[in-house]
Amino acid sequence: METILDIEWVLACYADDVPANGGACVKHGNEQIAIYNFVRRGEWYATQNLCPHKQQMVLSRGMIGSEGDSCEPKVACPFHKKTFSLLSGECLSGDEFQIKTYPVRVEDGKVYIGIV
């Protein structure tokens, strides 16, 4: 596949490495990126691994799920259960936090993250 505009698609890991309906953390240079394998929805997501609430590198270890009638996909930080939208990165627990999200593509069992 071609690179669109200035998004660089980086091979992050193999699809099998990320637990079903859960997350795992990948190292990209000095960055830590959490990848989520939302098997139930047939979707993949990626966000920063750092929870902005207490600055902990843990989001990949959080539980994922959905919220509301629109079934917004979300991840809950394992530390204090702050939840973040996997689509927009917006904090859904009423705090003014925002996390970075990344586009994800999976091809031939390989997971690529789009880095801007």
């Binding site: 637990p19 079903a20 309906n21 859960g22 997350g23 939302f38 139930r40 929805r41 959080g62 539980m63 994922i64 799920g65 959905s66 919220e67 079934c71 996909p73 979300k74 809950a76 259960k81 939840t83």
Partner: peptide, 30 residues
């Protein structure tokens, strides 16, 4: 829906109390 951080561990607890299976087999609901 797709569950959440409240019902997943609650169901995990119920499953353990009923079947006492190895919990890490379903690690992402813990």
């Amino acid at each position: 829906g797709d569950g959440c951080e409240v019902c997943k561990p609650a169901v995990a607890s119920i499953l353990s109390s009923l079947w006492n299976d190895v919990i890490v087999k379903q690690d992402t609901i813990q």
